[in-house]
Design a protein around this nucleic acid. Structure first.
Lengths: 339, 339
DNA sequence: CTGTTAGCGCATTCAT
DNA sequence: ATGAATGCGCTAACAG
């Protein structure tokens, strides 16, 4: 493995000069620059990343924390984040916390040991006070998930509004018995949606009914289970708000299998606008989340923080959500997207 | 940021001794070991990763190459690989080639610059001769995708068998006009499945009909398009083999929308056994791929190669595939899994 | 069992 | 415009 020293010897120049051309410094004559470039090519020389990292105190690697990547929402987030990071010359390390506070804390050591230059948290498993101490080692940016206590940049979506427009849509279609279905008690994303859900109910003089609340639904199987739980109630809901398209799809699948009609017997609204919303029959009304924009912004910000070395300070960047009306709420009538 | 030197000073010991306790060396008295541990705790000391990487010529990072992570098959592969890597104390860098040979080659420099200890290729965008030179910098293991020319360990699935059993299933149900639908001309995975497909046809004295072949189907939208292309043929196929559940779902979705019955008018078999196969109506007959086992094996092998520093040499590890029969091929009759 | 010394590969003073 | 010297933080001979 050729080192900078080898290039220096071959060209008869000093390591300093080689380093200068590697880093595009000025004050290197065009003549010698060419000479060096040729020698590097000839030797197949490439700077050693570890050495540069040590010397520059910088790895050009970001860590992205997610619960699990097989959740399509997070897949999309990872895809967009990886691309955005790449555009800035950064690599991306994936950290699947699998909803475990311990795993999350453990991964945070990547920042402490300087294996990464910054951390993007797309989900949060610990109280902020447990995470905060790591701020002394590098920037942390919240993306998607958020925490009111956190004094760091936060890129998020207006989840209150998301819960609101989805619920209002159901209310406008005449539903009064609307079930609420979400994933994660700890998640502020879920809590915000519930606030929007309640706000919409309140506007229609309806109160939140705890019997209609299911806060442990993450996957398709959970949706299937929740469907049966709902139908076992004395007063069955006629509509259900869900926190993910997967859960919505699970509910719909099981409902159809049980002989229910969607949306006539049960209207369903999902969240995320995943590909499956156009595959199921009926297609699924959902809320679109601008994941790519969010990811791009989070990367831009964390790279700025890395450069300025100013890690603390709350900044909120919020992107809007959009209701996408499909057949799971409006049957065969004409349906259109609403803002 | 505390360094090893700080710990040495605080304890009055040498850096060597500190290093010894960090690395669990023998020959450190229990007394001093305690002393050091306390000092490290007090200073919040943690070894600097870059320095260790430089000194040890080892980063404890692996790179995983995939086309794009939003393909559920690759999401699952990433999930399993990240977990397996973590169990060995390795981090995982995601490299999305997006089907671009240039991007792939560019990411390969991670190996050359020693930013990663090894590369797992789950997809291949270049001829092996372009990739092979990187072997001098570290191990490359093929996982899922493969290349007959490649003289490196390969962990793969028996795709010929996969294509065979799926097709045979359709033949056994009386179909003779079976369309073939896959993604990727370059992919040996796709080519192998086609071999299996042809083999099954041959056993039934049928010949492969190029008019029924669609080799550019990756996503849901492609499935929708292919459905219409098939139905525009003078002699419409009565069954279709697809290379992914997403494509199968796209075909089914569009078929139902066009008033076709599945499987009566068109039997469809998918590939991957993704979650959507149980969501659509009808559910999708598919081929299960043991992704977790494959990922686990690939990680085990690459770590062994990193340790032994022997990178060249072909070794093939092959896992079996399994047909999962569902409603998209057998209608409402009793269906069961076959081996 | 412990310390001294050297060096991994690079970028940056500070000279000239 | 170029080079010599220094050190980023750590581990591994080699002594003792």
């Amino acid at each position: 493995m050729a080192t900078i020293e080898d290039v220096a010897k071959l060209t008869g120049l000093s390591r300093t000069t080689i380093s200068r051309v590697i880093n595009d410094h000025p004050y290197v004559s065009e003549e010698k620059r060419k000479l060096v470039l040729e020698a590097m090519e000839k030797l197949g020389y490439v700077p050693n990343s570890s050495a540069r990292s040590l010397r520059n105190q910088k790895t050009s690697i970001l860590a992205l924390f997610i619960p699990r990547i097989t959740n399509p929402f997070f897949s999309e987030l990872v895809e967009a984040t990886e691309i955005a990071a790449g555009e800035h010359g950064y690599q991306l390390i994936i950290c699947q916390t699998r909803y475990s506070p311990e795993k999350e804390l453990n991964y945070m050591n990547l920042l402490k040991t300087k294996q990464v230059d910054g951390v993007i948290l797309a989900s949060i498993q610990n109280e902020w006070k447990k995470l905060k101490p790591f701020l002394q080692y590098g920037p942390i940016v919240l993306c998607n998930e958020f925490d009111d206590c956190a004094n760091v940049p936060t890129v998020r979506l207006d989840q209150v509004y998301g819960g609101y427009i989805a619920t209002k849509h159901l209310l406008e279609r005449g539903h009064t018995k609307i079930a609420y279905c979400s994933g994660g008690y700890r998640s502020n994303v879920a809590k915000s949606r519930e606030i929007g859900f309640r706000k919409a109910l309140a506007e229609y003089k309806l109160t939140f009914d705890e019997r209609y609340a299911f806060r442990d639904a993450f996957h398709i199987a959970d949706g299937k289970r929740v469907f049966h739980q709902m139908m076992a109630l004395s007063e069955q809901p006629t509509a259900v708000f869900t926190g993910s398209d997967e859960v919505a799809a699970g509910i719909i699948s099981e409902a159809l299998r049980s002989g229910y009609r969607i949306p006539e017997d049960l209207a369903v609204v999902g969240f995320d606008n995943q590909a499956i919303t156009e595959l199921t029959n009926p297609t699924i009304t959902t809320v679109h989340q601008p994941v790519k924009q969010m990811a791009q912004k989070a990367v831009d910000i964390i790279i700025e923080k890395i450069q300025t070395k100013k890690y603390e300070g709350k900044e909120i960047y919020e992107f809007p959500l959009q209701l996408i009306v499909r057949a799971s709420t409006v049957g065969s009538e004409l349906h259109e997207s609403e803002a």
